[in-house]
Design a binder for these strands. Sequence first.
RNA 1: GACUAAGUAGCUCAGCAGGUAGAGCACAUCCCUUUUAAGGAUGGGGUCCUGGGUUCGAAUCCCAGCUUAGUCACCA
Length: 571
Amino acid sequence: MAELTEQEQIRRNSLNELKKLGINPYPAALYEVNVKSSEILENYPKDNTLYQHISIAGRIMSRRIMGAASFVELQDAYGRIQLYIKRDEICPDEDKTLYNTVFKRLLDIGDIIGVTGYVFVTQMGETSIHVQSLTVLSKSLRPLPIVKEKDGHVYDAFSDPEQRYRMRYVDLIVNPHVRETFIKRAKIVNTMRDYFNEQGYLEVETPILQSIPGGAAARPFITHHNALDIDLYLRIANELYLKRLIVGGYAGVYEFARDFRNEGMDRTHNPEFTCMEIYVAYKDYNWMMTFVENMLSRIAMTLHGTTKVKVWGNEIDFGGPFRRAPMCDLIKEATGYDVLPMDEQQLRDTCKALNIEVDETMGKGKLIDAIFGEKCEPNLIQPTFVTDYPIEMSPLCKRHRNNPNLTERFELFVNGKELANAYSELNDPIDQLGRFQEQLRLSEKGDDEAMFIDMDFVRALEFGMPPTSGMGMGIDRLVMMMTDEQSIQDVLLFPQMKPEKKAPVTTDEEFVNHGVSAEWVPVLRKAGINTLSALKEANPNKLYNDLNGLRKKNKLEMPPLKKEELEKWMA
RNA sequence: GACUAAGUAGCUCAGCAGGUAGAGCACAUCCCUUUUAAGGAUGGGGUCCUGGGUUCGAAUCCCAGCUUAGUCACCA
């Protein structure tokens, strides 16, 4: 156990004093809560006969003690409300312990309390709760970062990203907009779920542990099943499983899937992320575009009451219909090159002419994608369906009804980022097998993201899958756009972090077991010795002087340390 | 993975022509019966990220490492 800071020690002392006073700092019984802070602030000013017998609980976020009366800001799940605590009100008898000792001295910012009382307005005009009784519900042993705010100006914000993500609980306590973001995230997901369910589509769950990681081009995580003694992969997509279910006869299936990809991490990529995929029988990608437009405008309306949303400095209009443009048209628009009829070599030359880096492993599909990614993507600010991708890029997608070199695929771009990807799904089993084999060829060429052949999936298609349209949408990205957050870490409650480094520390017990006398352990730590190895390696003369020097400086009531004693500890 | 920047009190940050470590909030003690980021007075609190080097002397200069952020590369 690392040494406690002074403030932590003071809180632990307060905890013990509470116990001595017969107050349980962590009571088991429920505390009745019959009102939310937000409803009081909303309704009381309109009708001040309301809320005259209330009971509310929350966390102390600030205190202003003015002698025999005090003001506390109490934060519950819905906001903050001021408490007015008057000594003679909560301590009507002679015994003023609850106010003078418990409230003023033993409670701190961060503690959780419950109060009963009535609502009134202070002389300063703030709706407040006049407290009549106070109950300690949970003592907080660590000081919270103190964030203050006045007229929208935030003082001393708790803003260090590492601390915010590692200690998300603290972030949520002191940064209300963070709590709000995750409420919005849930609203987005619920809106989508309602939209799908209303149309009779079925929410399903498919395997995360897969023996063939299919449905996307990405590097998977590998894990091992002991009983079967086989390697399994964490899914990179659930597409092939959902299509099996369409073969099985459902009208539509969807899943909010956690996918895992063993690739880089940055502000738009987390190793695990959520992708919603939906497959609907007897539809095509044109139908799906309209379906997506309606879904997004509904989400925007639910969240913001309008389809126009501010995202990263741009005003994005999620009210459809969105622009629909074939990929090769957009490339021609941006670069003047018509890549549609080009072969692989011509594409390489074009990339060179456009100053786009390529390598030997790239096939036609990846080359075109490179040009598109470089020259077109960043310009697609308002929602745009990019359609009709080259066949090499889309091994699971049906050939275009008018051009066999293209596929019936669209990606939806918003603010220069890909938000959704959809197909008229390939349901020709022979074509599908051929496309898998082409992927195998790419893989042998060195493309480590090429897809594996999933023979069971091909077998499923051989039984017959209806014409189907499928769509996948990155939920994290969607949430980022709908909440105007710049970083995926701000829309994931617990983003992946490197493990917290832990300094090796020797416990007090270990020091004592080693022979160090207990009263000297804190002094040793003060002298900078926190591990047994540091003790053994220290200079005995310097340490001897330091320890007795600290004893004197801190006026410790114990006999001076003898040199022989110290040498025994250091042995 | 590459480059750039940062790491000082519980939190937010100053300090750097090398010379005893600072502020605000928080915390402690005392005073104060309605305050609005901030009532008054006094006080305690630091492995200046870690390890080396230069130096009489390093938070400050140099090197290496760790962590974080940003940009780039791969990817959704």
